[in-house]
Design a protein around this nucleic acid. Structure first.
Lengths: 223, 223
DNA sequence: ACCTGAACACCGTTCAAGT
DNA sequence: ACCTGAACACCGTTCAAGT
């Protein structure tokens, strides 16, 4: 029952690779080049190794991406325990958004994987705890956490997609402005100034406030 | 100013390919094999043509995926105009979810593209119209539509990911059950029966109701 | 005008062989 | 035990040449 990380005799040459350093390098490569350019070969090159060597530490590329998502979730914390449940939940959702924004294509990596590591589960545990402690039922707390996470991921997916314009085709708000100029979309025309806003934080805060207000209404059914 | 679809002399051999049929075939292939197996070569084979020929109709694979997303959005309608704004908005969000669920990996295709076609814009116009007609400000209507769409996409992404289990690794709820059994996640343990629920419709309805209730609260600030 | 055939520059993954 | 080298079975995309 000895801890292998301290007691293993380290027979043979010390490895040039390990999971943690590889994940860290992969996240750096992600930031530099984006998800589409993150290939096993390029990652191997960054580690000074052949591509095949990576498969001693990750069964598939998907496993690597899952480890990257788990690493992004490690250390995602909301405000301290004293705060109001509304602020704690909003804080956790905001911290999730920031964690995804911290790496290029972070939301895409997160949405494309299903980590069950301590970072991811700890975050879900914290969110659920805030709502259960606030008096919500187990089922309502579970569903509310799902709603908040799904909204946050959906929002950040869009935010990061808008963050890096297409290169060849014109930016999204431009196309929208043009299409709307035909006069066929009067409501979108009115909404355009807000839709074309480059700062996504107010959009996120608005949606999150909607969810929180909805939860509040759940507890005071008769206004 | 003649309509080219009727007046073009059709010189040369009639084309064996066209955009609409190709998109239709691609959506069928998507349903059969999933997004990862939808390659230009396989699509070409299904159309009885070489892969290079597709590039006469779609500049890139991304253009094809965008056309597929636009096709999925065509004909997405909510309930008729008489209904209450709450029901109309919920109906539109539900119709969006159903449109994404109608094709395997539909949410992934939608989230990965940015159609500015009439189907997509028409849907956004309808959503915005419901809220503006209900008296919400242009900015609130715009942000509320974004929140509803982002929640719906995030939710359906998860729903479709859960829909087809991994093959090799055990299903997600199973892993969750195991991790939670360690006792380190008391709140998740309580939430587990709901989180592991295979029917996602109640989860969707709950999140959507939260957003709608939040919008209601926006109009009656003092309960 | 429309499509073929063949190529280019890549992928993820596997595995015998070296050290 | 750890990594190399080389291969396998693919990709998206381009483009001269055929019809």
């Amino acid at each position: 029952m000895s801890d292998p990380s301290t007691s293993r005799p380290a027979r043979g040459r010390p490895p040039r690779l390990d999971q943690a350093r590889t994940v860290e390098t992969a996240l750096a490569l992600l930031n530099d080049a984006g998800l589409d350019a993150l290939t096993m070969r390029r990652l191997a090159e960054a580690m000074g190794v052949q591509a095949g060597a990576l498969y001693r530490y990750f069964r598939t590329k998907e496993d690597l991406l899952t480890a990257m998502a788990e690493r992004m979730m490690a250390g995602v914390r909301g405000p301290a325990g004293g705060a109001d449940w509304r602020d704690r939940l909003s804080g956790l959702a905001g911290a999730l958004r920031q964690a995804l924004l911290a790496h290029r294509d972070g939301a895409r990596v997160f949405a494309g994987t299903h980590s069950t590591g301590p970072g991811t589960l700890g975050f879900a545990e914290a969110c659920t705890g805030v709502l259960r402690d606030a008096g919500f039922s187990d089922a309502d707390a579970a569903r509310a956490v799902m709603a908040v996470v799904h909204f946050t991921v959906g929002h950040t997916l869009e935010e990061q997609a808008a963050l890096r314009p297409d290169g060849d085709s014109p930016a999204d708000p431009e196309v929208l402005r043009e299409a709307v100029a035909s006069g066929a979309y009067p409501h979108l025309t009115a909404a355009l100034p807000t839709l074309a806003e480059p700062d996504y934080t107010p959009h996120f805060d608005f949606g999150l406030a909607l969810l929180v207000a909805g939860l509040e209404a759940l507890r005071r059914p008769h206004p």
